[in-house]
Nucleic acid binder design. Structure first.
Lengths: 344, 344
DNA sequence: TAATTTTACGCAAACGCTTGACTTATTATT
DNA sequence: AATAATAAGTCAAGCGTTTGCGTAAAATTA
């Protein structure tokens, strides 16, 4: 068993040429003659030579690694996104250093430190639910490590991001319900401060107004996404003066809890009350009463697009080290889309 | 904006001392005087010095990175496992390079190449469904990159692995059903060649025999996990001469399909027919008819344990570079466990 | 006070590779 | 035939750290 791996030095010695010649030969440099070039390449193959990437990383000041920090891989949204990220990264020769924040700000900060230490070339981040201070991101500027945020993006100027616009999908969802004859449509939304919550509300209002229906604020309730608060909201909606015949829920988990509550109240799902949700569970159609339709937010594509954007940024950085790149920011918005489930 | 990050050379120059002194001072080396030590450390802090890890990686021939190759993060089992991996890795100062094979052998090989190029210190692998040639793993021996397999392990000798023994949990599952009064118990198992399938079968047989019930091979059917084959198996079981009153299914997906089929046949779930499954969906209790109980396989713990094992291997490697380490292999088996669901 | 130990630090090599600058043959140009 | 241009290499610096070894100066011992 060989103890030490072959290096270009080794090859150079065996062929009695200089290491720079070997290096250039392996890179097909024009100033090396065909003869020696093939000699080198053959010996390299024979010795199963492989360049020591750590040396190259070091020498080039690049690691061809991109760090990914996201809240929770067990959320289907993110496990889908990471596939998009991986695929796009590998396509350009990058690899993915992973870290989950589990929605903890401390963990997030810690991960950034680690990524910084490992000298990732760039960072892809979906921020934790509880992040409202952004210094730890800004600190990376100093290291010239670009960040592209995706899905959950901080509310600060001058950042690159990729996100999915929920307004459009929400409008489609409401229109779908209107077309089905529903006139009183409720919404169980998320935490008030979340941008995602606001977008859903905006879509709701927009759709109502365009259809010349008045917007009844009493029909839109916020929740903190816990089972209790969702059940409470559901109950409140279903016992109000204006009882909705359809409810749009913040996501599939909310939908499931709301369904449960409605059933507890002896309502027939899809008859007395219909649900439309935002897709995050691929198997939601296996659940007892799947939503009639869901708004799809294309996690795979978001991840992919974010990665492509980051890599683009990285290329530019190496090409032109000027300041101009710092002045323009990518803001990429994908459109969400309503998907109507089978048998509806 | 600083263009170049501070190095120890920089510090050395400013303090007019040698770089080796700086290096040692920062490492609290005993042969550096307290006076200079603090001077160095203070300047380092002031300049926000951070060691260039790529240089260190290179110099030490270690990257403090472990590669993880697994089939599919969108499977709850693996997204759980990766959390265990991450936590254990971070605890020891390692980071995680991620790659999904999506159950493709080619992708798996490719990932191994990438990981090798990136000079990961060690590898954690759960093999793809279709892998039946193991050369690409063996090739890593040459690079002295240890592998610990987890959950899905290749059938070759002389490997380290962590897996979960399903036999015990299966025995518990059967016993649970027996205690509930069931006497005819069916099983919808997985593909025949899978070790996971064999273990389930073994558990089934063991439990039956221990209870002095005869093992009826007609009650155990294999499936290839597709919806069609599961439905067919379910139908066959429920129309056979000996109709089971309970069925153990290979996993939660199988359970859902089987339930659907049973309902199609006008059977009342939990009355005419009961189901017990192997846990892989955290939200399975949200489904229409969740299984009465599931066999838990502790993905988080498996990931954690596998990582700890790998790191242990890595420590040994640096400590004693002898051959002895190559002669003993870790084979760690966790026990599965039956979890009885609420309201049963 | 001389000899010896200890303390505190500097020198320089090494890790493997890339690359700008320089050198020496060889071939082409006038 | 002298000069210029090209081809094919070589040299050596440099990337940032770590570390074995050497060595003054200071402290201890005899």
């Amino acid at each position: 068993m060989k103890k030490t791996l072959p290096t270009i030095k080794e090859i150079a010695k065996q062929l009695n040429i200089s290491i720079s010649t070997v290096s250039r030969a392996l890179h097909d440099h024009p100033s090396i003659g065909l003869r020696t070039k093939t000699r080198v390449q053959e010996l390299a193959k024979q010795l199963q030579y492989e360049p020591n990437q750590t040396a190259i990383f070091f020498q080039q000041g690049k690691t061809f690694t991109i760090g990914v920090i996201l809240p929770e891989l067990s959320e289907a949204f993110f496990s889908s996104a990471i596939s998009g990220i991986e695929d796009a990264a590998h396509k350009s020769g990058y690899t993915v250093l992973l870290g989950q924040s589990h929605d903890s700000v401390d963990k997030e900060k810690q991960l950034i430190e680690t990524m910084k230490k490992h000298r990732v070339d760039g960072l892809l981040i979906s921020i934790s639910k509880n992040t409202n201070n952004y210094e730890h991101f800004e600190a990376l500027q100093r290291y010239n490590i670009p960040i592209v945020f995706f899905d959950r993006i901080p509310k600060i100027p001058n950042i690159h991001y990729v996100a999915c616009n929920m307004i459009n999908g929400t409008v489609q969802a409401i229109n779908f319900l209107l077309k089905k004859g529903h006139r009183i449509i409720g919404m169980i939304n998320g935490p008030e401060k979340l941008p995602a919550t606001k977008e859903r509300l905006d879509g709701y209002i927009q759709a109502m107004i365009k259809s010349r229906l008045k917007y009844d604020a009493g029909l839109v309730l916020n929740s903190d996404l816990t089972k209790e608060s969702v059940c409470a909201a559901t109950e409140k909606l279903l016992t109000g003066k204006r009882k909705p015949t359809a409810i749009v829920t913040f996501n599939d988990y909310v939908a499931m809890d709301a369904v449960q509550q409605a059933r507890k109240m002896k309502l027939k799902i899809n008859k007395d009350i219909c649900f439309v949700s935002y897709a995050n569970l691929p198997i939601s159609h296996y659940t007892a009463y799947p939503p009639m339709a869901s708004v799809e937010q294309f996690p795979y594509q978001q991840g992919q697009k974010a990665t492509e954007t980051l890599i683009d940024l990285l290329q530019r950085k190496t090409n032109a080290d000027n300041e101009a790149i710092n002045t323009t920011y990518y803001k990429i918005i994908l459109e969400s889309q309503l998907v109507i489930h089978e048998g509806v």
